[in-house]
């Protein structure tokens, strides 16, 4: 407990008991809380799996009373691509943190490795691409006859993935904010924590998707 590390501030020092930054402790507590949020959403999705009375269904074809045939609605190839995009965004994110932390070190100056603006922008773009895939998925589902009002699957699917998408959107805004700070004044190793907490959030959103991809898309 006594391993205190003073936090550099303007003139005075700020003591924290653990030597850790307050913001990082808070973001981990927040992530803990988010686990429960997504657990509630995923539980509901799983509870309602197979309970829908009318189609379209995620993994099974469905013939409506009027004789119209609906294919299984989930598009695995497209979602696999978007999953890959989100995984790669996590790679770009760790590169961004590494670039900010190692600013000025040999091997980082003037190289792509040390270009934090590039990596931040790449993460944001990959995140936005994921959102694009999601928008495509949602609109094509609506065209195929599945809306949030259609059945229990539609309600729970759109709410679950929509909540995840909202988290990605917030993450993209956060990344763009960091990028604008980086462009305006340059992020230095002293700002690493700002990038670190954003990265923790971003990776968490990524691992939630890992769970969703398996539970919703791959397991019928």
């Amino acid at each position: 407990m006594a391993s205190a590390v003073a936090h550099e501030s303007h003139e005075h020092t700020h003591y924290t008991t653990t030597g850790l930054d307050n913001r990082k402790v808070a973001i981990w507590a927040f992530i803990g809380s988010e686990c429960m949020l997504f657990a509630s959403l995923i539980s509901t999705y799983l509870i309602y799996k197979g309970k829908s009375i009318v189609g379209p269904f995620p993994h099974e074809a469905w013939t409506s009373p009027s004789g119209q045939i609906f294919k299984p609605i989930l598009n695995i190839p497209v979602t696999s691509q978007s999953t890959f995009v989100l995984l790669m965004s996590s790679l770009a994110m760790v590169m961004a943190l590494d670039a900010v932390e190692s600013r000025g070190k040999p091997g980082y100056v003037g190289t792509i490795k040390g270009n934090s603006k590039f990596w931040l922008a790449a993460t944001a773009v990959l995140g936005a691409t994921f959102l694009g895939y999601q928008a495509f998925e949602f609109t094509s589902f609506v065209h195929e006859g599945l809306t949030i009002k259609t059945n229990l699957f539609g309600s729970s699917f759109f709410t679950l993935t929509g909540f995840h998408g909202a988290h990605v959107t917030a993450g993209v805004l956060w990344l763009l904010t960091l990028l604008s700070i980086d462009i305006k004044r340059g992020l230095t190793p002293k700002d690493a924590l700002l990038v670190d907490i954003c990265a923790l959030y971003w990776h968490f959103v990524d691992v939630v998707w890992i769970a969703i991809f398996t539970l919703v898309y791959l397991i019928a």
Binding site: A29, F30, G32, S33, E34, M36, L37, A39, S40, L41, T44, Y48, I148, K149, N151, L152, G154, S155, S156, F158, T159
Partner: peptide, 24 residues
């Protein structure tokens, strides 16, 4: 932090049912 997310989600479902026609 662990109890409130559950009611938040339950309330979101209720809100969606009331306003957006979901069927939770």
């Amino acid at each position: 932090i662990l109890a409130f997310p559950a009611i938040t989600i339950a309330l979101v479902f209720l809100l969606f049912d009331r306003f957006f026609g979901t069927q939770f």
